[in-house]
């Protein structure tokens, strides 16, 4: 693949419109851990701006690896990541990560945790706490500003992690199985809150999940990965109308067909 188009002005080179809309481009990403663990093989992928993209696939297929490479937290063995057309190495302000294990500072209050990204950028205390309070309210945990993480439930901790990622105002949110540590009710509530929030905040989200239903329910684009070494098996765009209520969507024929189709695909890997 060409590495000659490093410079920004790609919009004028007559490329298809869909390409210019990709805020993140994954180019030929291959990842080996050591010499023999082959985690990813030549992944090519575009992440459309303002949409929700989900990585789905069997356990160990490299979803977390791919997400962390996009985040700049892991070095790919080869290939490159482009953000708005420019190659990046390492984390950057346009991306924010929501960790599967929350990764909250146990010795800091909710307020300080949410403001932590801004603290690292040397923003004034007043200023960053104002921003933090705004997002604490937005994810629905107002009143818990002065609590410590161990005083919160799993679902609330995950909201703190989400608020922290929102507070730095990154365009791309990277979420690694954000709902895996919470119960089913919290999960559904959280999914709806997330959809609502994203409609307001206009973020691009890349989301790792194990749940087919969750992927179909939330995503604009589902990337199905095959088992190790992870390759792209297929890309599915469910195109489910979000106008209907959550319960109607879950009974929608289109929704159910997609769930069934993906299940048939994934089932092959289990046998």
């Amino acid at each position: 693949m060409p590495t000659s188009l490093q410079s920004m002005p790609r919009a004028d080179d007559g490329a298809p419109v869909s390409k210019t809309e990709n805020i993140v481009e994954v180019r030929d990403i291959t990842k080996f851990y050591g010499t023999d663990v082959h985690a990813l093989e030549k992944i090519n992928l575009g992440i459309p701006v303002g949409q929700m993209t989900t990585f789905l696939g069997p356990s160990g297929c490299g979803k977390t690896t791919l997400l962390k490479i996009i985040a700049g937290l892991l070095e790919p063995t080869s290939g490159e990541i482009l953000i708005k057309g420019a190659p990046v190495s390492g984390p950057g302000p346009e991306r924010a990560f929501v960790f599967q294990d929350f990764a909250l500072l146990p010795w800091a209050t909710v307020l300080r945790n949410v403001a932590f990204g801004l603290e690292l950028r040397h923003e004034a205390k007043n200023e960053r706490e104002k921003v933090a309070r705004h997002y604490i309210a937005e994810v629905g945990i107002s009143g818990f500003e002065q609590k410590y993480p161990h005083e919160l439930s799993g679902g609330m901790r995950q909201r703190v992690g989400l608020a922290r990622a929102l507070a730095v105002n990154a365009e791309v949110l990277l979420m690694d199985e954000p709902f895996s540590a919470v119960d089913e009710q919290t999960r559904r509530k959280f999914q709806e809150d997330l959809l609502h929030l994203l409609a307001v905040e206009k973020k691009t989200v890349i989301f790792v999940t194990h749940s087919i239903e969750e992927a179909v329910y939330l995503s604009d684009q589902i990337v199905l990965l095959s088992p190790r070494p992870g390759r792209i098996h297929s890309i599915i765009r469910p195109e489910i109308s979000r106008d209907a209520g959550p319960d109607e969507i879950r009974r929608d024929k289109n929704y159910l067909d997609h769930v069934e189709e993906i299940w048939q695909d994934l089932r092959k890997y289990l046998e």
């Binding site: 950057g92 302000p93 924010a96 990560f97 960790f99 990204g117």
Partner: peptide, 15 residues
Amino acid sequence: ASASLIQMCQSFQGT
């Protein structure tokens, strides 16, 4: 020290 917290700090571009 927690690897996950260190990675979190990196992801927010901490020095």
